[in-house]
Design a protein around this nucleic acid. Structure first.
Length: 432
DNA sequence: TTAGGGTTAG
């Protein structure tokens, strides 16, 4: 009787199955995935590609650069990568800030003849190109290069372009593109609810409230029903320009259509009323939330803390912060920044330093908002003298004396600022 | 393996 599998093949199949089952159940962490990858790659064969895709997805999600290096090991093993494997690779290259590797990876997909099925791979590439504020180039890819390779752009491709245009403050062009697509749209590439939501949000962020509202009103005529995201965007836009009556009108319309407000809806209203100093209205919204069974979330508490800090009531804000933690809510970097800004306004340097230590203990790194708050606060002290700036391998230490006290700021994200032109405003004014 | 909304600094 002949054996069905060569020696070792059965244990390899068992390992592959185990990996895929655990991946589907969401039971693989990054460290786990690395160990399983080491185990599998030693015995891997052509059948291992699905399990390898699962492991690359888990590792790449957390650490895209590591995902790229694992792919190199796959390429050296006798496992022909699948189109999906290349998709994960393109995504990892782009998210690791290695567009110089992302383009060749995509070129490889084309060379191997995967182009017709490479639609998702193109989406990763388009997203990364748009993130670099090169949406015009991404548009050339969608309109000319993809059809050239028989890869028909889908609504995902177009919606990535719409988001890119809006992020470049080119919402008017996005609006015109919607109209062109409506006039001669074909098949799957008619604008959908996500397209409208993206452009409505872009117009609102550029202060074009009237145009955003008109587009919102045109949706039903064009056969697209607004969803919860659409309603929330319009309500948030109205709240940001302090048109609270209009926001309440839109909320009524939303309820009439049977769509229930969620925590994001209430957060917009609470923020709007706090900005106007109308605390009685805030209390009313909180009661309404509670009546409708909607629980406040981290953003609700952050908005409340921000109001208290800006009113010189940091102690009360801190009580909310501490009670939030005791209830098991994890503060985000924004929550810390709000409190940090409150302490900075009070010039409470001791509290600021303690909070930074707490962030560190909880594994949260300050972002460019946080650094600006810190540096601006210290820079306002007349006795600040920059003592030393050390730049080593993408890391920056700043040290200075303030009131005979040696202060440090460690900037692990220097490369990030440099890359995205997000070097903190206050830091620039100190260094140059 | 791909797209959209609510909070923070100067």
């Amino acid at each position: 009787m002949s054996r069905r599998f060569p020696p070792g093949a059965m244990s390899r199949r068992i390992l592959e199955r185990k990996i895929q089952d655990r991946y589907r159940a969401g039971h693989i962490g990054t460290d786990d995935a690395l160990n399983l990858f080491d185990e599998l790659i030693q015995v891997a064969g052509p059948s291992s590609v699905r399990a390898i895709n699962c492991l690359l997805t888990v590792v790449g999600r957390d650490c895209p650069a590591l995902g790229v290096s694992l792919f190199n090991r796959v390429a050296r093993a006798k496992v022909p990568p699948h189109n999906i494997t290349y998709g994960i690779l393109v995504d990892c290259c782009c998210r690791a800030g290695r567009m110089d590797l992302g383009h060749p990876a995509m070129g490889h997909v084309i060379k191997l003849g995967f182009t017709a099925e490479a639609i998702v791979n193109f989406s990763h590439l388009l997203k990364a190109i748009c993130a670099e504020k090169k949406t015009s180039y991404a548009m050339d890819i969608v309109l000319w290069i993809m059809p050239e390779f028989n890869c028909v752009p889908n609504i995902f491709s177009y919606n990535i372009l719409f988001k890119g245009l809006c992020n470049e403050r080119r919402s008017q062009e996005a609006l015109e593109l919607i109209n062109i697509m409506v006039e001669d749209g074909r098949g799957c590439c008619r604008p959908d609810v996500v397209t409208y939501n993206t452009v409505i949000d872009g117009l609102l962020k550029e202060g074009e409230v009237g145009k955003a509202y008109s587009l919102f009103c045109e949706m039903p005529q064009r056969g697209i029903s607004p969803d919860d995201v659409t309603w929330n965007s319009i309500i948030s836009g109205m709240c940001k320009v302090h048109a609270m009556d209009k926001a309440e009108d839109v909320l009524e319309q939303m309820l009439d259509r049977g769509i229930l407000p969620d925590v994001a809806t209430y957060n917009s209203l609470i923020h709007g009323y706090y900005s106007l100093g109308q605390c009685e209205e805030v209390d009313r919204i909180f009661k309404e939330m509670s009546r409708n069974g909607v629980q406040p979330d981290i953003v609700t508490y952050s908005i409340q803390m921000d109001y208290l800090c800006k009113s010189g009531r940091c102690t009360e804000a801190r009580k909310i912060f501490d009670s939030m933690i005791s209830l098991g809510q994890k503060p985000t970097v924004t929550t810390y920044n709000i409190l940090l800004h409150g302490y900075a306004m009070e010039r409470s340097f001791y509290d600021m330093n303690c909070l930074i230590e707490l962030m560190d203990d909880n594994g949260i790194s300050p972002d460019h908002y946080g650094y600006n708050i810190l540096i601006s606060a210290y820079a306002k002290e007349e006795t600040v003298v920059i003592l030393r700036k050390t730049v080593t391998s993408r890391k920056v230490w700043l040290a200075w004396y303030m009131n005979d006290y040696l202060c440090f700021i460690y900037m692990p994200d220097y490369y990030f600022f440099n890359k995205l032109s997000l070097m903190p405003f206050a830091l620039l004014s100190l260094l140059y």
